[in-house]
Design a protein around this nucleic acid. Structure first.
Lengths: 144, 144
DNA sequence: CTCTATGCAAACCGTTTGCACGGAA
DNA sequence: TTCCGTGCAAACGGTTTGCATAGAG
């Protein structure tokens, strides 16, 4: 797959969706972001090219991209954030920078270690994340 | 420590807070809940005894209890939820039922296994949770 | 030309705030 | 009697909706 933005766009096309300038810009943003972004940041990004974009277009498309599994949603203390969905190649978790919200792969899954659930508990999913400051941010703190 | 509700109340007293009926009811609710509750549920609980309670009283007290570290806050897909803070005795994680939101202790911490962060990444905290259906809910699905 | 995606404006929901009063200490 | 906690009502911020129009296919 060539340009990552193109793969988001062809993913949308595969779903029969129309490719508008707004959607192209959203694809661009997610393909070039190494981490989680706020709806507000998505709106700001599109605004730079289309000054009049409305928030509902942003939210509608974010919901849509989550539904068709191209991006994923995540609750942060300062609000919901989104990031490009990781390829389905291999299961992994993430280190997440609390300053710039970039993510780094973590190739270790605690569930592989054999977890013993309480009686009758049926496991459906799990979450494992490590938070902190990435190299860039710990050297030069305070930034986003 | 005798009754868990009493320990919440004495925790509040220790902070110099006044013990009102509303606060006593909140303490009662958290001490008798085995899991996460929504602000709305807190409001409903108090309402049963004080029909006119206002939502701002609920939110104010929840914020307060989080600040003085007696309860903890957690983001769920359907909104923020709160639960009694686990004792500071030993570090552990939780199995969380996606139906009734009860929690079960999980005495295994992946971070003890020696995690290797990316270059320069400073770890500050981590999250490890296992989601699913508890014994009660998997037998009798759909309920809260 | 058709029908989806957008912009607009208003609604919505959970949460927060300012203020005067009631009640704990 | 003091002053914290409450209720009320209104404001707030993020998100969603209904509807007419613009624009992708």
């Amino acid at each position: 797959m060539e340009n990552p933005a193109e793969s988001i766009i062809s993913g949308m096309e595969a779903e029969g969706l129309r490719i508008t300038v707004q959607r192209r810009l959203i694809a661009e943003l997610f393909s070039s972001s190494r981490g989680f972004v706020l709806p507000r940041q998505v709106h700001t990004h599109i605004s730079r090219h289309i000054p009049g974009v409305s928030y509902d277009t942003v939210y509608r498309n974010l919901r849509l991209l989550v539904q068709i599994n191209l991006i994923e949603q995540f609750d942060f203390p300062d609000g919901v954030r989104f990031k490009l969905r990781c390829g389905p190649d291999h299961h992994h978790h993430h280190f997440i920078c609390q300053s710039c919200h970039k993510t780094y792969p973590l190739d270790f899954c605690p569930v592989d270690q054999g977890i013993h659930p309480p009686d009758g508990f049926v496991i459906r999913s799990h979450k494992f994340e490590i938070y902190g400051l990435c190299g860039d941010c710990s050297r030069r703190p305070k930034e986003d």
